[in-house]
């Protein structure tokens, strides 16, 4: 039995005065999933998020949450919460005040704030102001402020983009763990394909306002439906109209002849640039131990299973 749908977008479009930001997008988000909207900047993914949250009105189409049509509701009546790209923490309130903001006052509120602070590892910071926190801590307050309300869907708008690259990788797995623990459906907007691949149960790839492909990370990486998806998710060699990822290309005793034109040592692997006898460029990513010299003649081959025919 397929999992129950918590959020569904039906032929959603948004026309701005100057351009069409979202074009006829239909999407089903399963309950409890970590669902990513992946695409280059300006592809309409944030606009979709804002229409779900209620900050933008769709030009046409519908937004359904838990079997109820919500696209005419004001933001404060929707059981979704947002983690903003800039976090949008209230600077005049403490961490405690920020997290309490959406809670109804009562004895339960105190416990819930305490529990959520524990979940995001911010115990002891409750009385700090946002200006006294590090970037990573602010991000966790923004997260805590939203999940404490136990929304049906948590909307995350590039929540890692403001963090420094080292921290970003660590936060990825933390965020993924948190999502599993609290069981809230995450709709995660990102332009970083590595982020989307490593965290998501399902990914929807967008381009120019339209949906390109929806699938598991493995499906969209290995079986892209369009050339855009294939290229956006990682490097791809295009040989005779067939796509092969560099890591699927092997240097073998037998196969197609190629000439090495350059190599790049990447630490954990080595990237080799070659030109096939037919004149097409091809790139291989191989174990770091082997070394090749420019001008060297080699043979390349790949499994037909790794081919991607479009």
């Amino acid at each position: 039995m397929p999992p129950e749908t918590v959020l569904s977008l039906r032929r959603l479009s948004k026309q701005f005065p100057t351009h069409r930001a979202v074009a006829d997008v239909s999407l089903e988000v399963p309950r409890g999933a970590f669902f990513s909207l992946l695409g280059p900047s300006g592809c309409g993914k944030t606009t979709i998020l804002r229409m779900i949250a209620g900050f933008e009105t769709p030009t046409s189409g519908e937004v359904w949450l838990n079997g109820q049509r919500i696209d005419t509701f004001p933001p404060y009546q929707r059981s979704v919460n947002t983690v903003f790209q800039s976090y949008a923490l209230f600077p005049h309130l403490t961490v405690q005040g920020n997290i309490e903001f959406g809670l109804k006052k009562g004895s339960d509120a105190i416990n819930r704030v305490r529990d959520v602070l524990q979940q995001v590892h911010l115990e002891g910071k409750a009385s700090r102001r946002p200006s006294e926190l590090s970037g990573g801590e602010r991000q966790r307050v923004a997260l805590a402020r939203a999940i404490v309300l136990q929304p049906d869907v948590l909307l995350l708008d590039e929540p890692l983009s403001a963090l420094d690259p080292r921290l970003r990788k660590q936060v990825r797995s933390e965020l993924r763990d948190l999502q599993r623990r609290v069981g809230v459906t995450f709709l995660f907007v990102t332009h970083d394909q590595e982020e989307a691949l490593s965290m998501s149960d399902q990914i929807a790839v967008m381009n120019a306002g339209a949906l390109e492909q929806v699938g598991t990370p493995r499906e969209i990486y290995c079986r892209p439906c369009t050339r855009f998806v294939a290229d956006f998710l990682g490097a791809m060699n295009w040989i005779d109209g067939i796509g092969v990822r560099p890591e699927a290309v092997n240097i073998t005793p037998e196969g197609r002849k190629a000439t090495v034109t350059g190599t790049a040592y990447l630490g954990s692997s080595c990237q080799i640039e070659m030109i096939l006898a037919s004149g097409e460029a091809i790139r291989a990513q191989v174990a770091a131990g082997v070394s090749f010299q420019p001008g060297q003649m080699v043979c390349v081959s790949w499994d037909s299973e790794d081919e991607c025919r479009l």
């Binding site: 209620g54 900050f55 933001p75 404060y76 979704v80 903003f84 949008a88 923490l89 209230f90 402020r145």
Partner: peptide
């Protein structure tokens, strides 16, 4: 005034 703060407040259920 940062508009996203007003959006955040509405998002958290404030009328």
């Amino acid at each position: 005034l940062d508009r996203s703060l007003l959006e955040a407040a509405a998002d958290l259920g404030a009328r």
